[in-house]
Write a protein that binds this DNA or RNA. Structure first.
Length: 1117
RNA sequence: AGAUCCGUAGCUCAGCCUGGUUAGAGCACUACACUGAUAAUGUAGGGGUCUCCGGUUCAAAUCCGGACGGGUCUACCA
């Protein structure tokens, strides 16, 4: 046990942190923080795995601060909080990085580089920056188990994923289907949304767009239309920017609630009279207002104005079911061809869809299910079949007449490429089937690798049927504590409401393979759920199918669950057919969503952790809000499907870190903040404190280094100084908390006050922390340390520490300050783990109050209701306000605080206020340096009072009469006010009636004390007697002298306890004052006496109140 | 295009849920003061159409509707 409190040699947070880090490492502090809680209730936390193939940024520091803070907090509250780290290792960014590094493209894989070598490269690249990540993790003080992390590419991890997939498969939740996906014909590959979101993929291009005319078939359904048109031919108008999709058209979609009109007019190209149907709202796009009901007879080829007339109006829903003639009919897209694919299809009809708008086009959507996701969905719903008249190279198939085999876009860089879209439009024009053809500029996605336009194309894919559990997911989501709430209800809630099945397939190389094997004819398939099952299958296939099959895998089984090895495995079906693996890999989000189970290799190991709820579901997770549809979603989906449970009970989604101007940080803009430099320069604690207190975690944070500096200076500086102050005197007096804890009732008012405030603070902080509102917690602590502890308690109590003997009052002061410091360090430990541990350890080294080696092994403070005294806190605030008012009065008349004044007067409005003030009297007098405090009551008759309506209470009673009442009340005479106060009631005669009011309905304040200069704040009014008697002046002189001598002591470098002797030169105007207050002066400056001498050559000349004097100060002994 | 968050002093943010009559704090700036812990602090000063428009109400920064601006996510592989 140390005898003295270790003092810091300066506030150097980075160097303190280095020492603490070394201490933690030497003591295994993190491991101990968990092992010490063995047997306690677990608090389950999941670490969202970062990908270590990029450098950590400052935005990682914010979410990790949040995570670390909650975990430390819960640990200190007695929970056991295991934190397994993890690495996200699969996925496209890793592949792209490797391809860039090797200078290859996807096409080269399997040619220039084997899949085996390629995946080996990925495996190496994936943890490329692990060292930097580990480094930032350590330096920022993030306690997470880096020694036993889960790694998503490891066999154990993948085995759990397979188990989950096989469970889903058994439940019928895993299925294969066609979906419409972005596809690059030039590259011959599907594209991920990630790839589509590469900068520059969306380009403004000019495409030939067409408004095509679909001729209505006259039959029962269309009778209404033909009645309106008098039997003339009718056309639906539909707009497309991709005419090449027209041969694949199978339906026209209208909005059920949209108004459509039947218009009589002429085809502008052929000038043939036509009747067309389009959305009413879009008439203006095609027809000029002047042309309405124009002269149809006068119209000819040369006419500029197209006459038109509305014949009838319909709702979209009325049009449903009407049939039309196929626009571009060929052999390949004949009805027979359609029925061959979809035997019961009913194409070429009007159908309805909610996605139809009237913002563009005609309000009638040409629907080709193969080339649009909306089209596909609505097409399926109405069973219109599917036609894919374009092959995977991007050219029309055989059997489309003059368009057969033509590329729909210039995918091959043919120098004389003729746009087939133009030719289609020309054909339509000639055949009276086009109403408008024009170049249309829009933003269209391009393949980032080939720079060619993509198209949406039907591809086979595996899905998880999340829609089957949608209702459970929605219901269970409502039990999750989302911070902020709106993310859970809004962003996430809406997301769930609009859920579609989870497309799992990725056609990639480095990822978790889908463990589905099937026979060549597709009739038999199996989903493998474990390595053992696969190895069994390997042997069985070898036995049944022959010696060469799987021969490399017979001895040790499969050793790596990735491509290309899994693809070499051939299994055997029940009917003895060979089965090969389907080529798909799965979405990496599945990897991370499965981490609750896969991190523990469930169910192959650690079965109880999940089954008995020790590690599932999580009590808390936190990540950036960008994970809402990522990790938060996949965690939730898998938990609901597997265990009908939430995956996490509380989730904090933190906002982004922007630069100080509010722009997103990006390498391109050069505004990225380097977290290493920041932490090295300002310290992790200051950075963490800044991140937590500056803005709520879910608000975007404008990151400004100046803000960290401010935190460092203001918060840590103040706390540091308070600690140093404590050390200075405690070391002198040898305070080591050896004496018994002095009961509160024996402590002075101010001690009881700060302890009451401290306990109020503990309550506030724990409430906020429990509610995942760390910002409020941090701000409350800041306020306490700065305003209450440092600038009120310590300032007012300074003398108690250095004056007088080591007895009860002094010990009480030490115990009180010690308790505050020690409690504060524990309160801030979750946010600032380093500095708190440093101070705590220093304190505890002397007192040994806690039998722990680190603050993070100590318990979090628990507030003590019996210590909280609201009345005491209230009157201290009253005292603070009084002092503030007196100081402002002194300032106004320019009288220094050092100059004593005779008295202050305070009008008291009621007995309670007087009682409260009386208890604070000594404190106030000392603080503002006055001799007396006089209370003025109304009986003295000197106060004039001011009355104002209490709008809140009175407004509720009077309502509309409020305005008049307020005016009447303000106009009350002094007598009326007094009458109200005495009887407690008063009657208001207003236009709207007579009302009785009581004292609670008004605010009465003291307005003035005639003849005095006063200041007021709220209900408190203070008057100051500024008359300076000779005696007061002399006392002021004496105090000034004390100040000057103390300065000299300080400048001379004397110790606090050094006694001095002082010599003064005779003859100064100050002499009388000094002699009069000789004893007082000597006490203050620790001098045995003052010598007056006639000659003083060595002395220092000082000036007090415009009087000069020579002083000599020497140390005794 | 949809969803969502945000908009209060030069800057960073409270206050809004639960409406109440002078809208607060810190930083920065200016002046003065205090200090035997202080890199602090105190007092005073300048600085606000609470983004805008409309509504509800006796009363709106606060509640409701709309617009505008900014951020993010999504834009159909969830």
């Amino acid at each position: 046990m140390s005898v003295k409190y270790a003092e810091f040699s300066g506030l150097n947070l980075p160097s303190i942190e280095e020492q603490i880090l070394a201490k933690w490492k030497a003591d295994n502090a993190f491991e101990k923080s968990i092992s010490l809680r063995q047997g306690r209730k677990p608090f389950v936390f999941y670490e969202g795995p970062p990908s270590a193939n990029g450098m950590p940024g400052i935005h990682h520091v914010i979410s990790r601060t949040l995570k670390d803070m909650v975990c430390r907090y819960k640990t200190m509250q007695g929970f056991q909080v295991k934190r397994k780290g993890g690495w996200d290792t699969h996925g496209l960014p890793i592949e792209l990085g490797v391809e860039k590094e090797l200078g290859i493209t996807k096409e080269d894989i399997g040619k220039k580089i084997s899949v085996e070598d390629y995946n080996r490269k990925c495996r190496e690249a994936v943890l490329r920056y692990k060292k930097e990540w580990d480094d930032i993790t350590t330096k920022m003080g993030y306690w997470v188990d880096l020694d036993n992390p889960y790694v998503t590419f490891e066999n154990n991890y993948i085995e759990t994923l397979w188990w989950i997939l096989s469970e889903l498969y058994k439940k019928g939740l895993l299925y294969e289907s066609v979906s419409i996906q972005p596809y690059s014909p030039a590259a011959g590959t599907g594209l991920s949304s990630h790839e589509l979101n590469q900068p520059g993929t969306y380009k403004d291009v000019k495409d030939t767009s067409a408004v095509a005319m679909f001729k209505v078939v006259e039959n029962m359904q269309s009778t209404v239309l033909f009645n309106a048109s008098n039997g003339a031919a009718i056309f639906f108008m539909a707009w497309t920017t991709t005419p090449w999709t027209l041969p694949s058209n199978l339906a026209l979609t209208v909005g059920p609630n949209i108004d459509y009109v039947l218009v009589k007019t002429f085809n502008p190209y052929t000038h043939i009279p036509v009747q067309v149907i389009l959305a009413k709202a879009l008439l203006g796009k095609y027809f000029k207002p002047e042309g309405e009901n124009g002269d149809f007879d006068a119209y000819d080829e040369k006419a500029k104005l197209l006459p038109w007339a509305i014949l009838s109006t319909f709702k979209g829903a009325d049009l449903a079911g009407i049939e039309y003639e196929q626009l571009l009919a060929y052999e390949a897209n004949s009805l027979n061809a359609i029925l061959e694919i979809t035997p019961d299809a009913k194409p070429f009809r009007i159908i309805t869809g909610d996605f139809v708008t009237t913002e563009d086009g005609t309000g009638i959507v040409h629907t080709a299910p193969a080339f649009g996701a909306d089209d596909y969905r609505v097409g399926k719903k109405f069973n219109i079949g599917i036609l894919t008249m374009v092959d995977k190279q991007g050219k029309f198939v055989e059997g489309l007449g003059e368009f057969s085999n033509r590329y729909v876009k210039n995918y091959k860089d043919e120098p004389d490429y003729i746009d087939v879209n133009v030719d289609i439009c020309v054909k339509l024009k000639k055949e009276n089937r086009a109403f408008k053809v024009e170049k249309y500029e829009h933003s269209y996605p391009h393949c980032w690798r080939t720079d060619k336009p993509i198209l949406y194309y039907p591809l086979d894919a595996w899905f998880i049927k999340t829609t089957a559990v949608k209702d459970r997911m929605v219901k269970l989501n409502k039990t999750i504590n989302w911070k902020p709430k709106s993310t859970g209800e809004g962003r996430f809630g809406n997301w769930l409401e609009n859920m579609v099945d989870w497309n799992l397939s990725r056609s990639r190389y480095w990822g978790t393979p889908l463990p589905v094997w099937r026979t060549e004819d597709g009739t038999e398939e199996i989903c493998i759920g474990s390595i053992a099952e696969l190895n069994d299958g390997i042997r069985k296939a070898n036995e049944l199918l022959g010696g060469e099959i799987n021969k490399h895998y017979l001895h040790e089984g499969i050793l790596d669950l990735h491509k290309p090895f899994v693809d070499e495995i051939i299994l055997v079906s029940k009917n003895g057919q060979p089965m090969t693996r389907v080529p798909d890999l799965i979405d990496v989000w599945f990897d991370s969503g499965a981490m609750p189970y896969a991190q523990w290799h469930y169910p192959f190991e650690n079965k109880d952790l999940i089954d008995k709820g020790e590690a599932f579901p999580a009590d808390f997770i936190a990540e950036g809000v960008d994970q809402t549809r990522g990790w938060f979603y996949t965690l939730h989906a898998l938990a609901v499907m597997l265990f009908d449970s939430v995956a996490y009970k509380a989730v904090v989604s933190n906002g982004l870190v922007l630069d100080k101007n509010g722009n997103k940080m990006s390498k391109r803009l050069g505004n990225v903040v380097n977290p290493f430099e920041t932490i090295e320069k300002y310290g992790a604690d200051a950075t963490r404190w800044y991140l937590i207190t500056n803005a709520s975690p879910w608000d975007n944070l404008k990151f400004d280094l100046a803000g960290i500096q401010e935190v460092q200076r203001k918060f840590f500086g103040t706390l540091y100084n308070t600690y140093q102050f404590f050390c200075l005197y405690a070391n002198v007096d040898g305070f080591a908390f050896k004496e018994g804890y002095i009961p509160l009732e024996q402590r002075p008012e101010i001690d009881r006050w700060i302890l009451s405030s401290l306990n109020t603070l503990i309550k506030q902080v724990t409430d906020s922390m429990n509610d995942f509102e760390p910002t409020a917690a941090g701000r409350a602590i800041e306020e306490f340390v700065d305003a209450q502890l440092s600038n009120w308690y310590v300032r007012l109590c300074r003398r108690r520490f250095w004056k007088g003997e080591y007895e009860a009052d002094k010990i009480s002061a030490y115990q009180t300050l010690y308790e505050c410091l020690e409690t504060i360090t524990r309160l801030i430990a979750p946010i600032s783990p380093f500095f708190s541990d440093a101070v705590f350890t220093n304190l505890n080294a002397v007192t040994n109050q806690f039998k722990v080696a680190s603050i993070h092994h100590a318990d979090y403070p628990v507030y003590n209701e019996s210590v909280i005294d609201p009345l005491l806190e209230e009157r201290m605030q009253l005292a603070q306000e009084t002092c503030s008012l007196v100081l402002s009065l002194r300032k106004k008349v320019n009288i220094k605080v050092r100059q004593p004044l005779q008295k202050i007067m305070i009008p008291v409005l009621n007995a309670q206020m007087k009682l409260q003030l009386e208890k604070m009297e000594d404190l106030i007098k000392a603080e503002v340096n006055v001799k007396e405090l006089e209370y003025i009551t109304e009986t003295a008759g000197v106060i004039s009072k001011k009355i104002k309506a209490n709008f809140k209470t009175l407004g509720a009673k009077l309502g509309a009469a409020m305005k008049e009442a307020a005016a009447v009340i303000t106009a009350f005479s002094q007598a009326e006010i007094t009458a109200l106060e005495q009887s407690g009631q008063s009657t208001l005669l207003l236009k709207s009636g007579t009302y009785t009011i009581d004292t609670a309905d008004v605010d009465i304040t003291a307005e003035d004390i005639p003849g005095w200069s006063v200041a007021s704040k709220g209900k408190l009014t203070v008057a100051l007697d500024i008359t300076l008697s000779e005696e007061l002046k002399q006392e002021g002189d004496a105090r000034e002298l004390v100040n000057r001598v103390q300065n000299i002591r300080k400048e001379s470098g004397f110790d606090l306890t050094d006694r001095i002797f002082v010599r003064l030169k005779e003859g100064s105007a100050l002499q009388a004052s000094i002699i009069k207050f000789n004893d007082y002066i000597c006490r203050e400056i620790l001098a045995d006496g003052i010598d007056w001498v006639s000659d003083l050559k060595e002395g220092i000349e000082i000036e007090v109140n415009n009087m000069l004097m020579i002083v000599e100060v020497n140390k005794k002994g």
